[in-house]
Simulated scan of single mutants.
Amino acid sequence: MAAKAVWNGAVLASTDDYEVVEGNIYFPPASLNLSYFKPSSTVTTCGWKGQASYYTIEVAGKQNKDAAWYYASPLPAAANIKDHVAFWKGVKVEKH
Score class of each variant (00 low, 15 high):
Val91Cys: 04
Thr44Ile: 04
Tyr70Asn: 02
Ala5Gly: 02
His96Thr: 12
Trp7Ile: 11
Tyr70Gln: 04
Pro29Ala: 12
Ser35His: 05
Phe87Thr: 02
Gly47Gln: 12
Ser53Val: 04
Glu94His: 07
Tyr55Arg: 10
Val59Gln: 01
Ala3Thr: 08
Trp48Thr: 03
Thr42Leu: 11
Ala60Asp: 14
Gly9Val: 01
Val6Leu: 07
Pro29Gly: 14
Ser41Asn: 14
Ala86Val: 06
Ala77Phe: 12
Ala67His: 07
Ala3Cys: 07
Ala30Cys: 06
Lys89Met: 04
Gly47Asp: 10
Trp69His: 13
Cys46Thr: 00
Val21Thr: 13
Phe87Met: 01
Leu34His: 08
Pro29His: 13
Lys4Gly: 08
Phe37Gly: 05
Lys65Glu: 15
Pro76Met: 01
Ala79Tyr: 00
Val20Met: 13
Ala77Lys: 11
Lys92Met: 11
Trp48Phe: 13
Trp69Gln: 13
Ala86Tyr: 05
Asn8Phe: 04
Val11Asn: 06
Val43Trp: 04
Gln51Thr: 12
Ala79Trp: 00
Ser31Glu: 08
Val20Phe: 10
Ala68Arg: 03
Ala60Glu: 07
Tyr18Glu: 03
Leu34Cys: 02
Gln63Ala: 12
Pro39Tyr: 03
Gly90Gln: 05
Pro28Lys: 14
Ile25Arg: 00
Ala79Arg: 10
Phe27Gly: 02
Pro76Asp: 04
Gly9Cys: 02
Gly23His: 05
Asp16Cys: 02
Tyr55Ile: 09
Tyr26Val: 11
Ala60Thr: 00
Ala67Ser: 12
Ala5Trp: 02
Thr45His: 13
Ala13Pro: 10
Cys46Gln: 00
Asn8Lys: 14
Asn64Cys: 09
Pro74Tyr: 02
Phe87Arg: 02
Gly9Thr: 04
Ile57Arg: 10
Asn24His: 14
Cys46Val: 04
Val43His: 13
Phe37Arg: 06
Ala78Asp: 11
Leu75Lys: 15
Leu75Arg: 10
Ile25Trp: 03
Tyr18Arg: 01
Ala10Ile: 00
Val43Leu: 11
Ser53Phe: 06
Trp48Leu: 08
Thr45Arg: 12
Lys89Glu: 11
Trp88His: 00
Lys65Gln: 09
Asp66Glu: 14
Asp17Met: 08
Asn64Ile: 10
Pro74Asn: 01
Ser53Cys: 06
Ala67Arg: 05
Lys62Gln: 12
Lys95Thr: 12
Gln63Pro: 03
Ala68Lys: 03
Pro39Arg: 10
Asn64Met: 11
Tyr71His: 06
Ser14Asn: 14
Ile57His: 10
Lys65Pro: 08
Val21Arg: 15
Trp48Arg: 01
Glu22Thr: 09
Gly23Cys: 06
Lys89Gly: 04
Ala77Leu: 08
Leu34Thr: 14
Pro39Phe: 01
Tyr55Trp: 10
Tyr70Asp: 10
Ser14Ile: 15
Thr45Trp: 13
Ser53Thr: 11
Ser14Ala: 15
Asn8Arg: 15
Gly9Leu: 03
Tyr54Pro: 12
Lys49Ser: 07
Val21Cys: 11
Ile81Met: 07
Leu12Trp: 06
Val43Met: 14
